[in-house]
């Protein structure tokens, strides 16, 4: 019966892990169960090359001697003994469950299991029932990061392998879709949304893309290790600064008493004024992004009237005309 590949890989790991000395390829071919299936020298070397890469992908330290023999040093193969304080364990337990979906969710729980099994405690138990403080910490606080964007997985894989990606991207809501070719440096979650930061090859410049605006499939192209991300770029601040902070200024408006609770959260009442035959309160509110503020005002309909500044007043009138219909928005 042909041996499964997993069986051959496991036998290779065990053989090299238990060797005091480096083992050359002919020893491996001869002694390790599974390689006898190779029909020719060429087939064996192809098989062995692939196997080496897969072990390295798993983080198994496969060392090569100057004359091309191999071994796996046990000290580097296994996770060293780790001892964590109860509050460190609480932090780790939360961290291991942060990821909601994708490969990272599985990796997080796998990492927790390894750390637990590498622990100094001789008795393996359930860390949560053993430590009430830990159970409390993990039940009172549940952080979660979702990675539901279909583009997350292929881009994460490309970031790891340092391979180029191409995808169709809609820059803004109304914009057309363009194909972008990007060296993906890394992924950032900012205000609940995922972004990829990288180097846009066609534009020869650093760019940030929101994953939810990628249309269709992400294609990975070219070889692995095609680029080196710059060391001095802090991805989080790149994304944070890509939406520039608005100029802080204030607006004055008249609001019907009792309405506009949202606007009033950051408002100061500075007087009153008459709208039609009603007395409204005069509020001063901070204006962040002009159109966001305008939308907040327009949502209130006749319950809010802008007095200043001029550009906010114009924006509000334009939105109201659009909502009324019959005129161009």
């Amino acid at each position: 019966m042909a041996k499964t590949k997993a069986e051959r890989l496991l036998n290779l790991v065990i053989a090299l892990l238990n060797s005091e000395r480096y083992r050359d390829v002919s020893w491996i071919r001869d002694k390790v169960d599974g390689y006898e299936d190779a029909a020719s020298d060429e087939a064996f070397f192809r098989m062995f090359e692939r196997d080496k890469n897969e072990l390295r992908d798993l983080g198994i330290p496969l060392q090569t001697s100057p004359d091309g023999a191999y071994r796996i040093p046990p000290g580097e193969f296994s996770l060293p003994e780790l001892t964590f304080t109860p509050s460190e364990k609480a932090a780790l337990a939360l961290a291991g469950r942060l990821w909601e979906t994708t490969v990272l969710a599985e990796a997080g729980s796998g990492a927790l299991r390894k750390i637990n099994d590498a622990g100094g405690d001789t008795e393996a138990g359930d860390p949560e029932t053993d430590h009430p403080a830990l159970a409390q910490a993990t039940s009172l606080l549940q952080p979660r990061v979702r990675t539901a964007d279909p583009a997350f997985q292929p881009i994460y894989t490309a970031v790891r392998a340092r391979r180029l990606v191409t995808f169709d991207y809609r820059k803004d809501q109304a914009g057309t879709v363009e194909t972008r070719k990007v060296q993906p440096w890394g992924l950032v979650s900012w205000r609940g949304r995922w972004y990829v930061v990288g180097f846009d090859e066609d534009r020869s410049a650093q760019r940030t893309f929101r994953l939810s605006r990628i249309n269709g499939a992400v294609r990975t192209t070219g070889r692995a290790g095609a680029f080196t991300p710059p060391l001095d770029v802090d991805l989080l601040s790149v994304v944070a600064s890509s939406s520039p902070p608005p100029v802080e200024r204030s607006a004055v408006l008249l609001v019907r008493p009792g309405s506009g609770a949202g606007l009033r959260r950051r408002a100061t009442v500075i007087g009153s004024g008459v709208v039609g035959d009603e007395v409204f309160e005069r509020l001063r509110i901070p204006v962040g992004h002009l159109w966001d503020t305008a939308r907040a005002v327009v949502g209130l309909g006749p319950d809010a009237v802008v007095e200043s500044p001029e550009d906010l007043l114009a924006a509000v009138v334009r939105l109201l005309q659009g909502a009324r219909g019959g005129e161009v928005a």
Binding site: D57, G59, S78, L79, L104, G108, A118
Partner: peptide, 9 residues
């Protein structure tokens, strides 16, 4: 003992 953490882990 468990293998060292993989890159993803």
């Amino acid at each position: 003992r468990p293998v060292r953490l993989s890159h993803d882990e």
